[in-house]
Amino acid sequence: MIEARGLGRTFTTRQGSVEAVRGVDLDVGAGEIVGFLGPNGAGKTVTDL
């Protein structure tokens, strides 16, 4: 079992802080396969487990 609670990722840019991911909770059971779907810029890549 994989459990993640409150995952977040913030980047600092010249224009200020950018919150890429906020408050992701995830439970993955043994043998389950999970995929992230979403539009460009939704934070899929920075939500690495």
Rank of each mutant, 00 (worst) to 15 (best):
V28S: 02
G38Y: 04
E32F: 10
R22P: 02
S17R: 15
L37I: 15
A20L: 08
G35C: 10
A30D: 15
I33N: 03
V18P: 05
E32M: 11
R22Q: 07
R14K: 11
F11P: 07
G41A: 11
G29F: 04
R14Q: 11
V34T: 05
A42Q: 08
G38W: 07
D27K: 07
S17F: 08
T13C: 00
G38R: 07
E32C: 09
A30L: 10
L26W: 10
R14Y: 03
F11D: 10
F11N: 08
F11K: 11
G29P: 04
D25Y: 09
D27H: 13
D25T: 13
G41N: 13
Q15D: 14
D25C: 10
F36E: 05
D27W: 10
V21F: 03
V24G: 08
D27M: 09
P39F: 05
V24Y: 05
F11M: 11
S17E: 15
G29M: 05
E19V: 15
A20I: 09
G16K: 01
N40Y: 04
D25G: 11
N40L: 12
F36V: 14
G23S: 02
I33T: 13
A42G: 08
G29W: 04
P39K: 10
T13E: 02
L26N: 09
T13S: 01
D25V: 14
I33E: 00
R22S: 13
A20F: 09
Q15L: 04
V24S: 03
V24A: 11
E19D: 13
G35R: 03
V18F: 15
R22T: 07
V21Q: 03
G16T: 00
A20E: 08
P39A: 08
V21E: 00
L26M: 15
E19M: 10
G23H: 02
F11I: 14
F36R: 04
G35T: 02
V21I: 13
G29V: 04
Q15S: 12
Q15V: 01
